[in-house]
Design a protein around this nucleic acid. Structure first.
Lengths: 175, 175
DNA sequence: TTCGTCATGTAATGGGTTACATGATTAC
DNA sequence: GTAATCATGTAACCCATTACATGACGAA
């Protein structure tokens, strides 16, 4: 569970857990959570919402949804979590399995840390740190094995990357 | 030029510019340069090499390539740069256009900074910094506009990300 | 009246991974 | 002998972006 591809879906569920939102509004939050340089594209977002709606995780909030043409207001489709969607997201939050520590999945877990059980939070953080340390080791041992010195710049790029996330982990450990 | 999708290709050219290599060996360097968490997959690498070979940027180094079955050694296909490939890569290195500063393309530029003209290097670095600053501003203004406070964690995640690259830029500025 | 933002969607494309298929060599 | 690593490749799939299509609303 929560292996791959579900990252976007989990981020949507997480945001909708806070309160109902329509797609255009969701995008802002998603763009921040996913933390790719660019904004999430509508070509990804809307098909994803349609899929999740068919899957029964989210549903239109009839009360706040506005159909275009009718009334003075703009058309917008407001989604809310279904009970199924809510429990699916809880499962995701509680999951500390291997897939959890993939970069993207970690980012989503991280974004909803405030709503995550403290014990689970720590396990995820520790797993993340272990993973980053392994990564650094692999890079360093690859460097030594081939004995073929990587460009200093590339190495520093790698090292800075690992370092910065480790700083974040430390920052989180202090709360 | 160097717009999209050429990232992997440029990294290959850059590594082959140092000395001829076969695919399996290239992967190690590519994995480090591209700096995704995971290793580059062969399903990406080999088709890419075939494409580049057809395009005339790289060619088999007959002297060191070993066909399987013949002789006591393992089969391996060693590639070298063609003159066309070499000049294509030089063009890429000299390019400081907007596309240059996309995250991935920047990583490749960065990896071959040692072989890049100092003036071009500075322009690329400055552009990168400008881009990162814009990114930070967008994040912050989005935060203020919506007045809907992002989860503290997400915000710190963003901030740390930008910060760490800024530290890298500073580090590079000092040489 | 024109431009920026709000708002939703589809179709084509791109560029990667995974899973599969194969086989030699090296280290234990 | 058997497991890990070396070495190359293909086909199916995943999941994103880009380009396109449409239209209302608010502000200059």
């Amino acid at each position: 569970m929560s292996q791959r591809g579900e990252v976007l879906e989990m981020a949507v569920l997480g945001l909708l857990q806070e309160h109902p939102r329509h797609g255009y509004e969701l995008r802002k939050g998603l763009t921040a959570i996913l933390g790719w340089g660019r904004a999430l594209s509508y070509g990804s977002l809307y098909p994803c919402l349609a899929r999740m709606s068919r899957a029964g995780w989210i549903a239109e909030d009839e009360a706040s949804t506005v159909r275009p043409g009718r009334s003075g207001r703009r058309g917008r489709i407001v989604y809310e979590l279904t009970p199924a969607g809510r429990s699916h997201f809880e499962e995701f939050l509680a999951d500390t399995g291997p897939g959890t520590w993939e970069d993207e999945a970690f980012g989503v877990h991280f974004a909803f840390f405030a709503r995550t059980d403290a014990a689970v939070r720590l396990r995820i953080l520790e797993g993340r740190r272990r993973r980053l340390e392994e990564r650094l080791e692999r890079v360093q041992s690859a460097l030594q094995r081939t004995r073929e010195r990587l460009d200093t710049y590339s190495f520093e790029l790698q090292r800075h990357g690992v370092e910065s996330v480790e700083r974040e982990v430390r920052w989180l450990s202090d709360h």
